[in-house]
Every structure is written in structure tokens, then in C-alpha cells.
Simulated scan of single mutants.
Amino acid sequence: MSWLGYPQVMLAAWCPAVTVGLWHLLRRLTVRLPARERFVLAVGTALTPLLAMAVPYLPHSPLRDALPWRAPIAWGISNGITNADPAQVLSAVGAQLMLAASIVPLVSLAVSFAAGAVHVVRTARTVTLLAPRQCGDVWIVDDLADGIGGDAGQAARNLASTVGLARPRIVLSATVAESAEASAIIRHERAHARARHPLWIFLATCALRSWWWIPGRKAILGETRLAAELWADQDARAADGAAAVARALCAQIDAHARPAGPDLALAGGGIGFLDPGVELAHRAQALADPPRVLRAWQSWTVRTLIVAAVGAAAVLL
């Protein structure tokens, strides 16, 4: 039982479990926040266990000794088990589990980010093959649907996505760029690009995927993506009005609800105008309701509290 408080167990189990649990516990309150604050909270929650892994290991820190558990404070993660008796089955199994608690999180992080990097490269290659031409800050793909029929052709003609991590690019098909809804769609995608949503969603996806043994983590990733879409919808709504955004949203439903067409997926490379599923209902409801906006000082207060909570959890867990 005493081993449950060791740093490697804190990092592998307690930190992600407590972080995800608190997020779910406060869910009814956080959904009332504006989209930007919801996004910051979701990303902060997703990255907390990853940040905890990066805190220096200070076993003789006064703060560590003052806590009732062996807080990792934490990147050495291993207080080695030296009192395990090989002759006792439970001690031998426990020692192996403690070793796994030290190694598995690191391996999972490496594998998850490697998979994310592969996806980013594939997305960049797909965009390059589409041969887009630059028109201001928007890249237009001409004749994307030539020779493509059925659902794939429809998806190609309705392409609208923000791709790239460090330097996001807005990629539109010529059909979308020439449509009546182009203004709202472009403003929506510009909001994604300005806020670096592809980068933050990439980091959140890789971090959450690496904690595959923690239940409830997928809901946080879903909230991250939904909040990003609501944020972009709100920016487009402020410029063009709710009706224009609603028309643009409806115009994109069919193409993005189908799996066929260019692969510019959310996590790792691009953010499409619509992530099919229950997200659509939330976005439509948000357009029907008055926009949720905090005053500047309130917004910064909420964000400061989120950053402080993430920092405290990363250091203490």
C-alpha cells in the first residue's frame, strides 16, 4: 500500500485520474463558460499530466516533505523499490508493476507523439498533392473534383479546412470560395488559424492518447474540438451574423459528414468546418442562443485561474 504513493505511481495513475475526474466533476459549471475559456480549460486539462512529467525531480524539496504523499515534483519518476522480497509473489508482482509505472508512460508518450507526427506529415503531403494556389491568406484548390464522382466528389467540392501547426493555412475548394457562404466560412477558418487551434488540438490529442488506461479522457478531447468550433463560430457570427454562419454550417454538413474525400482530419493536421455527430447539435444550439461573452477582466481572471490550477496539479501530483 505504501508503494501507491511513490512518484511513478503518482504520475502514471493519480495525476491523470485526478485531473480527468475533476474535469468531469466540474462539467456542469464549465459548459456555461464562453467558448474561448472552455477551450483553454480543456487544453489545460489534457496537458496537465504531460506537464507533470516535465517537472524536475526534487526528492529533498521541503514542499515534497510537507505533503502527506510522495509528490513526484517529478521527472526522475523512480524511487526504486529495494525492499521487495522475490520469494513473495505479491512483492515480486508489485515490483514489476512499479517498473511498468516508470516505463509505460514514457513509452506511451513517445509512441503517441510519433503517431501524431506521422499524421501531420501525411496531411501536409495531401495538401501539397492538391496543388493549392495562394489568394491572400487563403489557399484555393482548383478542379479538385474532376474525375471524382459520388460522395467523394461532393466532399471534394466542399473542402474547407485549416491545416498546419506552426503556420496554419486555410484551404478551400474553388466551389466553397465562390459560394454565397464563403465570407462566414473564411472568417471561421481564420479564427482557427489565429488561435493556432490545430497545434493545441494536436498536443491535446497526443497527450490524452498516451494515457490510454485512464477512463473518461476521450470526453476531454471531444470538448477541446467542440470548444474550438464554437470559438470559430462565434468569431464568424460577430462579423457576419448568426444567420450567415448557420447557412454556411448547413452548406458544409453533407461533405464533412461523409468519410470520403481528402483526408484533412482534426487531430494533427487540420480543422474542418464541421466534425460530424453530436457536435452539430451543440453548434446549432449555440447559434440559436445569445452569444456568451465575458468582460475582459473576467475573461483574464478565468484564464489565470485555469493556468494556476494546471500548474498546481502538475507540481503537486
Rank of each mutant, 00 (worst) to 15 (best):
V107G: 05
L129W: 09
G272P: 07
G164K: 05
G44E: 05
I253Y: 10
L305C: 13
P59D: 08
A239C: 06
R187D: 15
R157H: 02
R28G: 14
A286N: 04
H188K: 01
A193P: 00
I140P: 05
L67R: 01
A242C: 09
E181H: 10
A160V: 08
P276M: 04
D151A: 13
A156M: 06
G153K: 03
R292M: 02
A177G: 08
L287W: 05
R292P: 03
S173A: 15
R258P: 00
A184C: 03
A54M: 15
G241D: 02
A13C: 12
I103N: 03
V20D: 01
A152S: 07
A182C: 12
V118T: 11
L58D: 11
A296Y: 08
Q154A: 12
W231I: 13
G94Y: 02
A281E: 04
G270F: 06
Q8I: 15
C15Y: 00
R36D: 14
H256V: 05
A87E: 10
I148F: 14
I103W: 11
L129F: 13
H282L: 12
P132Q: 04
E279K: 10
Q134K: 11
L165A: 10
V111R: 04
C135P: 01
T128Y: 06
E189S: 03
A244D: 00
E279A: 14
V107A: 11
A227C: 10
P198T: 04
N158R: 14
G269Y: 05
R258I: 09
A204D: 01
S173R: 13
L106S: 13
A177L: 05
P105K: 06
A244Q: 03
H197W: 01
A95M: 12
G136D: 07
F39V: 12
P34G: 10
P105S: 06
L67A: 03
A117G: 15
S78A: 14
N158F: 02
R28N: 08
S173I: 10
T45N: 06
T128G: 13
L51V: 05
R225A: 15
P105W: 07
T30A: 13
A152H: 02
T19G: 06
D240H: 13
I185S: 04
V111A: 10
M10I: 15
T175R: 11
Q8R: 14
A228W: 04
A12S: 13
V278R: 12
V293H: 06
A232E: 01
A160Y: 01
L266V: 14
D151H: 08
G222R: 12
D235I: 12
A219Y: 07
L63V: 14
V111M: 08
L22S: 09
W3Y: 08
R283A: 12
G270D: 11
V55Q: 07
F39H: 14
R28K: 10
A42T: 08
D263I: 15
A155H: 05
I186A: 01
R303K: 13
V176A: 03
A228K: 05
A314Q: 02
G241S: 06
A267D: 15
E223I: 04
P59Y: 03
G222I: 12
I253H: 11
R209G: 11
D235Q: 14
T45A: 03
L130R: 01
P215A: 06
E181A: 11
